[in-house]
Nucleic acid binder design. Structure first.
Lengths: 185, 185
DNA sequence: TAGTAGACAGAACGGTTGGTCTACTGTCAG
DNA sequence: CTGACAGTAGACCAACCGTTCTGTCTACTA
């Protein structure tokens, strides 16, 4: 029998799932019930619901996901970047897809003091660095500007896929990503 | 003295402002207070809060905004489409900008039965038609596919501007829009 | 064996949510 | 004048919100 993860892990897993499927406004009760954890443990480990939400974003590992997709695509920077859009097509056509967790959190939490905002920004900044490095390795004329364009395409795919189901925006974006990659120095 | 708009109009105006600045989860009380309207009037005119939110989206006139921006840009389809991205740069750099109202509503309302979803879809569909017609007039090789790409760029700009302030994504997207426009038949 | 730390259950806190209800007021047509 | 109607004011409801509390049980450690 596998040892059951501790309350902290169970709390994070349940919150990760529920804040995505139901939005960040899920009740604490629902999270506690799914995690099968005492009310007090939440406040002992994370201080507040806001703290839990922020920790879910921080520990999400989405950046590692992008890295893995690119590593699986081989060495050519062109293939590596385009693989991201192939993966986006897979992700956005899954029935369980409900949009980008970070964008959703950013839009839903209108309180500018919420600790989740810092995590969202850190993630996007990290993704920008990742793409900049890739374009630089590819000999792009303006790696930072190119990464801006790729990021707009990625965010666009994730946002568009929610509002126009069946549109396959990742395919449309992939063609534009090829254009970005063609800007050699 | 100008005649004060009726309760219905005041309710819509207040809801439009508050659901944008505070998110769709603002309380009914806050809307009623700002509209200076009796509680009962809300339910008499819109049936429920959900109905009010949906009506806000339906009557928003954002599509007319896009039309006006394009009409102000003259006759050349190329200028008309690029003007949209110039306008997006203005909008997204305003301090009051908090993202696309439709995307935010779509992500925040996880209940798939909410009447607002239909309005969001109708808006995006209308914008797609608008852009398709413009590209067709421009002699684009694949107006529908091109409109898909433009829509990804627009959604990308609106989403990205929220999560990476100061990035001016509209400028990055404008360059890609020029590429879309270059696909002549 | 006693002490301690962590996890548990569950009641209760004050506050807010969306929604319903009654009662009063003004207006305007017949 | 009268009745209908739209609006206002405010009490009220059950449900839920995040949070804090008391108290019990278990496992490890000194």
């Amino acid at each position: 029998m596998t040892t059951r993860p501790g309350p902290r892990e169970r709390l994070l897993d349940a919150a990760r799932e529920l804040t995505y499927s139901q939005g960040v406004h899920v009740g604490v009760d629902a999270i506690l019930k799914q995690a099968d954890v005492a009310r007090r443990s939440l406040y002992q480990h994370f201080g507040s619901k806001d703290g839990l939400v922020a920790e879910v974003l921080r520990s999400d590992g989405a950046l590692d996901g992008y890295r893995r997709v690119m590593d699986d695509a081989g060495d050519d920077p062109r293939d590596r970047v385009l693989a991201v859009f192939d993966e986006l097509d897979v992700i956005t056509t899954r029935p369980s897809f409900h949009g980008c967790r970070y964008t959703a959190a950013e839009l839903a939490l209108t309180d500018s003091g919420h600790p989740a905002h810092a995590e969202v920004r850190a993630f996007k900044e990290g993704l920008h660095r990742l793409l900049t490095a890739e374009l630089a390795r590819h000999g792009h004329r303006d790696p930072e500007g190119g990464a801006d364009q790729l990021l707009v395409l990625i965010d666009g795919v994730l946002a568009h896929a929610v509002t126009r189901p069946g549109a396959r925006p990742a395919l449309a974006a992939r063609a534009l990503a090829e254009v970005v990659l063609a800007s050699q120095s």
